[in-house]
Design a binder for these strands. Sequence first.
DNA 1: ATTCTCACA
DNA 2: TGTGAGTA
Length: 119
Amino acid sequence: MRIGELARRTGVSERALRYYEEQGLLRPERLPSGYRVYTELDVAAVRRVRLLLAAGLSTAQINEALPCMVDEDELLQPKCSGLVDALAAHRDRIEEAIGELESTRANLNALIGRARPVG
DNA sequence: ATTCTCACA
DNA sequence: TGTGAGTA
C-alpha cells in the first residue's frame, strides 16, 4: 500500500508518516516513481510508534526501545531488562515534572485567589 | 487523483 | 507538524 492508505488505516497524517521515516522509525520500499510502499507490518509498526510516542518517548528513544520490545497478544512489552529500567527512569522524571507543575499551579492559584479585577 | 520534496505571512 | 507550491 502507499502512504495514503497507510495514513487512512492508522489515522496518522502522511506528513507524520514521512517524518517517522526520516527518524528511522519506518523504512518503506520505494517504487521507481519514488512512491513509498508499505506492507501490512507497517500498520502494526505505526501503532507501536504511536503507543511509545503517547508514552512520552522521543523518536530517538523509540528507536532504541523498539528492538528491545516484543509484541505479545495485543500488547507491546519490554524484552530487555535495561529497557525496563530506562522506562522506569523516564516515568520517574515525569513524576518530577508533575510535581513541579503542581507547584506552579499552586502558585498561580495563590496569585489568582479571590483577586478582584480592578481595571 | 496521488505522491514527492522543499520551504515557511 | 500543518500547509502550500510545483512536479512526475
